[in-house]
């Protein structure tokens, strides 16, 4: 047995008081879970502690909380590990808070309906069958179903939603869990609405292109769903395979980036921005959308030039690999992109 201090964030809307911290001393074996510590504190010291839980075996996804600032399942987090990663110097204090990005109902219980489930419903989370529906089961290639199993591991705990850094500033973002759920059906060969689903998510101003690629959801997920990787797959399918040129500049940005590295070997930043707005060619900068963007950025550009940070000549011409190396890079593009095109048409 060891003694741990649980530092719980408490909040009761009926008391009309702001949230506050409360400490509970609990004695438990180090291999027991944070959830057991919370339930012990509730059972022995304060029956009013609010926590949602059920299976205690990391299957039901009910007990999502933040342990020491990071989303986790309370039942899936050992006390010794939590104490060691806690920020308190005594090495035995564990801070537990409700998950982020969702309103708190009471103590550690958040309103999953208000955010998580609303977003899941938004992506039509069911199969839209290809017609005609066969009399018996669909026959599907094994590999195609293996492809979507990673997203099927999701237990809807909301940990990724809690720690999503994009949702923090943009609550309308479709978010990691719903995007992973979307891939589960986009990647399913039995689904009839692949293109519609992709178009919907790419054209949404708060859709797949709002993901900042911060990896927070990958670290938060207790089931290895890697929601961000699923978002990248959705983007690839939307842009490369379905050639959806979305209004959010997502496809144009990716195309422009890739083309510039092909043409220069290195990233030509001054060309990337106008092309992302105005289209993937040297003339992109003359497109009204690019011009508008340029005008807005002028003060920052002027300041950068005035401080000698950016030299106009270098900004216009970019930097380029030596000729022999650029040729090597372009050979790599030809071989790999050529192979990808072949595979797509197969």
């Amino acid at each position: 047995m060891a003694e741990y201090t649980l530092r719980l964030r408490r909040y009761d809307p009926n008391r009309h008081e702001p949230p506050y911290w409360q400490r509970f001393a609990v004695q438990l074996d180090p291999h027991r879970s944070v959830l057991e510590a919370i339930l012990t504190a509730r059972g022995e010291q304060d029956g009013s502690i609010g926590i949602r839980c059920s299976c205690r075996a990391a299957i039901c996804g009910s007990c999502g909380v933040r342990v020491n600032g990071r989303a986790a399942l309370a039942c899936n987090t050992h006390l010794d590990r939590a104490a060691a990663t806690g920020l308190h110097p005594d090495g035995r204090t564990i801070t537990v808070e409700p998950m982020g990005n969702m309103p708190v109902i009471k103590d550690l219980i958040v309103d999953m309906d208000a955010v998580h489930w609303k977003k899941i419903r938004r992506v039509t989370p069911w199969l839209l069958n290809k017609q005609p529906v066969p009399e018996r089961e669909y026959l599907v290639e094994h590999a195609a179903m293996v492809d979507v199993t990673q997203t099927m591991a999701c237990i809807q705990c909301g940990a990724c939603v809690s720690d999503c850094l994009s949702l923090e500033v943009d609550p309308e973002f479709v978010g990691p869990a719903a995007s992973a759920k979307a891939y589960r059906f986009v990647g399913d060969p039995r689904d009839a609405e692949q293109d519609e689903r992709l178009r919907d998510l790419a054209e949404d101003e708060h859709g797949i292109y709002d993901c900042t690629h911060c990896f927070a959801c990958i670290d938060a997920c207790p089931k290895g769903v890697a929601p961000m990787s699923q978002i990248m797959r959705l983007r690839r399918m939307a842009g490369v395979e379905h050639q959806i040129v979305d209004r959010n500049n997502g496809e144009r940005h990716e195309e422009a980036f890739t083309t510039l590295v092909h043409d220069y070997g290195l990233l030509h930043e001054a060309e990337l921005l106008p092309r992302s707005y105005g289209g993937n060619s040297w003339f992109g900068k003359f497109h009204p959308a690019a011009a508008l963007e340029l005008v807005e950025s002028l003060p920052a550009i002027a300041k950068a030039v005035a401080h000698g940070k950016v030299k106009p000549r270098q900004a216009l011409l970019g930097h380029r690999l030596p000729r022999r190396d650029l040729a090597a890079v372009q050979t790599i593009f030809d071989v790999v992109e050529g192979r990808a095109r072949e595979e797509m048409t197969r």
Binding site: H213, M232, R235, R236, G239, V240, H253, E254, E255, F257, T258, V261, G265, L266, L267, L321, P322, D325, V329, V336, E337, A340
Partner: peptide, 14 residues
């Protein structure tokens, strides 16, 4: 002689 790392964007593409 080395090229851009792709910054995750090229990996998203291919």
């Amino acid at each position: 002689r080395a090229s851009c790392c792709g910054a995750g964007v090229i990996a998203e593409h291919n």
